[in-house]
């Protein structure tokens, strides 16, 4: 407990120290605002421009979560199909690996081509980019289920669906939630990226516009907002993971990530 407190204290100090150093160095070296604004300036910009930024934050959040939700649904469905059949697993695995190694960023121009710029490509990019880690994790979780656990239900005469619900899926949950943490971060990256190149809404777009107008501190304000959002999304899902799949870590309290 005291250890956890100390670590928390140290990491908070590190973050504050980082921004303090940044501030002090900018003053000492007399860095121009147009190159690297001081954190205090960025904070002021964030505060004063907040009413303008807020709708963009919501937009980015919306694209991310919408795309992510679609991705989860598709990912789980595909994962269950691939994971429950040994043949499907063996057959589909090379294709899955191939797909997942494509840099998903490359799909943005295609979506823009098909759907024009705006929210749609952002949502779709967020979706596509997060499907594969989910599929692979669900499939792995299902495919590596210990046969002994399934035998327990088989002797009772359980149907395939009952075995999936009572053994396969719960067994795959730790894999699923671990992949959600990764997936939400990827979705977020995808949405922001798509906004940056092909939208007039969202934090990505705000940063792009601010950069072409030399509003440097607004660019940095956008960056910090993105960092905060990213951390928040990750935190929500790792909290969820710990809540739901505590059994996989045998109830040990693992460090907050």
């Amino acid at each position: 407990m005291t250890d956890a407190l100390r670590i928390r204290f140290l990491s908070t100090s590190l973050i504050i120290g980082f921004f303090l150093t940044w501030e002090v160095l900018c003053i000492l070296l007399n860095v121009s605002d147009l190159v690297l604004p001081r954190p205090s300036e960025i904070l002021v910009t964030m505060w004063t421009r907040f009413p303008v930024l807020w709708p963009h934050i919501l937009q980015t959040l919306y694209s991310t979560l919408f795309g992510f939700s679609l991705g989860v649904i598709i990912g789980v469905a595909l994962g269950v199909i691939v994971g429950t059949s040994k043949i499907a697993y063996a057959v589909a695995y090379p294709l899955l690996v191939g797909f997942s190694s494509i840099p998903k960023v490359a799909v943005v121009p295609i979506f823009v081509l098909w759907f024009g710029s705006g929210t749609t490509p952002a949502v779709l990019t967020a979706m596509v980019i997060c499907v594969f880690p989910i599929v692979v994790n669900i499939a792995t979780g299902l495919a590596t289920t210990e046969p002994e656990l399934e035998d327990v239900l088989k002797t009772l005469g359980a149907s395939k669906t009952e075995i999936l619900w009572n053994v396969g899926l719960p067994r795959a949950m730790p894999y699923f939630f671990a992949s959600l943490k990764v997936a939400i971060t990827l979705s977020f990256v995808g949405a922001v990226l798509s906004e940056t190149v092909a939208s007039n809404m969202g934090i990505g777009n705000v940063m792009m516009t601010a950069s072409s107008n030399f509003q440097v501190s607004l660019v940095f304000a956008g960056l910090i907002i993105l960092a905060l959002m990213g951390v928040a999304l990750y935190a929500v899902f790792s909290l969820l993971e710990r809540r739901v799949t505590g059994w996989a870590t045998r109830g040990n309290d693992i460090a907050v990530t």
Binding site: D151, T155, V167
Partner: peptide, 12 residues
């Protein structure tokens, strides 16, 4: 059936 190795489901 009681198996030779107790196979309790760890999440329950």
């Amino acid at each position: 059936m009681a198996f030779q190795n107790p196979t309790m489901l760890p999440w329950l």
